[in-house]
């Protein structure tokens, strides 16, 4: 084995222990919180895991791999425990068995025979683990896919289709009282008539030209081509707004972690 990885690992381990000791020494402890040693350990571990994940930005390395695998493992275990306690123990057991409800210390709701169906489907899903009986799990999957499709169809139709289309039906001349009134009361204020009309026109033209861009049965030439070009501009501006917000979101995460490292761990900021 090469010396460099051993030395690096030893240095990191030494820094970890040093940080743990220092954080344990300076930890603020009250009677309700965890002990100083425990608090120091968790803060140090959080800081080292944060740095391990960030180290990937330089290049892939064993510390990043460790943090990644730890994250996946802990997440999977957490999800499984939550699923067991909230779905099986929380929902199923109280409706099927009084004895099991008492054993798990959850209030028994009463025997509901139709809850045997999800129990059976649950077992069928586990058949995926069997090399020969794996096909049986498709029944459960078919039920899941069918139910999801059935629930989502009216949902999308109502909130993402009808409501969104009706939201684009808007007056192109907001509060119109004639040209004279428009010019005599002309204002560039955000709540003014001019901005209202402009805003509604942008929505109308944006929707109309955006749809034209996706209409491929006619060649995009002439007036149709101009509308299509305007449509793609609208799409690009939308993607730009999304990108801007995404950058802000990612920087927020970076700020969150650096605030933790510089505040909670290193104590450089309050």
């Amino acid at each position: 084995m090469r010396k460099a990885p051993i030395i690096i690992t030893a240095v990191v381990a030494a820094l970890f222990v040093l940080s743990w000791l220092l954080k344990s020494n300076g930890a603020v402890v009250d009677e309700n919180s965890m002990s100083a040693i425990s608090q120091g350990f968790w803060i140090t571990l959080s800081a080292f895991l944060t740095l391990a994940v960030m180290s990937f930005l330089y290049q892939d390395n064993p510390f990043y791999k460790f943090a990644e695998h730890l994250y996946v493992g802990v997440s999977a275990a957490y999800w499984m425990c939550m699923g067991f306690w909230t779905t099986l123990v929380g929902n199923l057991v109280p409706r099927l068995s009084e004895g099991l409800s008492n054993w798990f210390e959850v209030p028994y709701v009463g025997f509901k025979p139709h809850f045997i169906i999800p129990l059976v489907f649950g077992f069928l899903l586990l058949m995926r683990l069997s090399p020969k009986g794996g096909w049986i799990s498709r029944w459960s999957l078919a039920f899941i896919v069918g139910t999801t499709a059935g629930l989502n169809l009216p949902r999308f139709l109502s909130s993402d289709f009808i409501s969104q289309i009706s939201a684009t039906f808007m007056p192109l001349l907001v509060n119109w009282q004639g040209i004279g009134s428009f010019f005599s009361d002309f204002s560039l204020s955000a709540s003014g008539q001019f901005i209202g009309i402009l805003s509604n026109l942008v929505v109308f033209l944006g929707v109309f030209c955006g749809i034209i861009y996706f209409f491929f049965s006619k060649e995009h030439k002439g007036a149709f081509g101009v509308a299509s070009r305007f449509g793609i501009w609208i799409l690009m501006i939308t993607f730009g707004a999304s990108f801007g917000y995404t950058v802000m979101g990612r920087i927020s995460l970076l700020v969150g972690r650096l605030t933790f490292i510089m505040g909670d761990w290193l104590g450089l900021i309050s």
Binding site: S159, S163, Q164, S166, A167, V203, T238, A241, S242, G244, Y245, T246, V247, M248, G249, R250, S252
Partner: peptide
Amino acid sequence: LTGVMAADYYQYLRSGQ
């Protein structure tokens, strides 16, 4: 919402949802 999601939900604001 998170910053990453926000731009996608302004349409629901305008529609009053």
